[in-house]
């Protein structure tokens, strides 16, 4: 199964399970969790189901396209099920059927792997799912996001698409994966990986990035202090600071003493965004419903 069929199959499957099919977020992010369709939607009581592919940038992981297993930008397929349904594991296992993996002839394990993002003030418990010893999915029950305890709880499924494709296709290099239409992954992305590595490690203008980081940080605060707060613009600005931080880090421009302080600054804004979103939804009367209130009223 080629990469695009993999994506299409998973998206079709999750759409059939009632997910909104969303598009990748058009701001650089390090993980699909930062997409507002996860970071914001898991907050508050409103039920939601969503699936989307998110290209995730981690400049420090780039390897000039030389390492057959590492990428500076990889594809995640992210699913959020809120509240987490009782049959979430079965739903997940059936999604493997959808991409041609029959659990009946494989070994599937759910091994404890908890997740935490200090920058987002978020953590959850869950597993990495292993298929014949290969980690194919991160499975997390979100407990907290933006520093806020969550109820209902969302289940987050993150499929590492390149890994799964490599495994299914038994390729020894990411760049040999069949993308679709007779084109290989390397033919689509190899040059981009090399360029991103050169830029991130050697060329990026540190002073400019630092200026931008400060600017976007202030912009996030301005959006938050606007009346009413502009939640999404504030999140976008905060995510930009997060990406600029990652770029500076890859460039070796963040001293050991600055690091913790900068993570704290990004986190502070992420927490404020989360609070502003919760207030906004509450003020709007939870347009997507409130299962906790329904329950209380019954």
């Amino acid at each position: 199964m080629d990469l695009q069929t993999l994506i299409l199959s998973l998206e079709r499957y999750w759409a059939e399970q009632g997910c909104v099919l969303q598009q990748p977020f058009d701001v650089e992010v390090g993980a699909g969790t930062m997409h507002p369709e996860t970071f914001l939607r898991v907050l508050g009581p409103e039920p939601y189901r969503v699936a989307y592919v998110q290209p995730s940038r981690r400049p420090a992981d780039a390897r000039y396209g030389e390492n057959p297993f590492r990428l500076g930008k990889h594809l995640q397929l992210q699913v959020i099920l809120k509240p987490s349904p009782d049959d979430v594991q079965e739903l997940y296992l059936r999604s493997l059927h959808a991409i041609g993996i029959d659990p009946a002839v494989h070994d599937i394990r759910f091994e404890e792997d908890n997740w935490e993002s200090p920058t987002l003030g978020a953590w959850g418990v869950g597993w990495q799912v292993l298929l014949d010893g290969m980690e194919i999915t991160q499975f997390t029950y979100f407990q907290q996001a933006g520093g806020i305890d969550l109820a209902p709880i969302s289940a987050e499924l993150t499929y590492g698409l390149e890994r799964i494709a490599m495994f299914i296709q038994r390729k020894d290099s990411i760049y040999d994966i069949e993308w679709g239409g007779g084109v290989r992954y390397g033919e689509v992305r190899l040059k981009e990986e090399w360029e991103a590595s050169v830029y991130g490690f050697e060329v990026a203008d540190v002073a400019m990035l630092q200026r931008q980081l400060e600017d976007w940080e202030r912009e996030a605060v301005r959006c938050l202090e606007h009346e009413p707060p502009l939640v999404l613009p504030a999140l976008e600005a905060t995510l930009k600071t997060s990406h600029l931080f990652n770029l500076l880090d890859a460039r070796g421009a963040i001293s050991v003493t600055e690091r913790v302080g900068m993570i704290g600054r990004i986190r502070r804004n992420a927490l404020r965004v989360a609070r502003a979103y919760v207030e906004q939804r509450e003020a709007e009367g939870y347009p997507l419903g409130n299962p906790l209130a329904d329950e209380g009223g019954a």
Partner: peptide, 27 residues
Amino acid sequence: DRRHDPEGLIRQGNEWVIRARLADAAF
């Protein structure tokens, strides 16, 4: 977490993962 490897896929999969991981380490 099962008795047997009915089609040999589990052995094959684990060998592939370990080869990939060792190749990564060799790199």
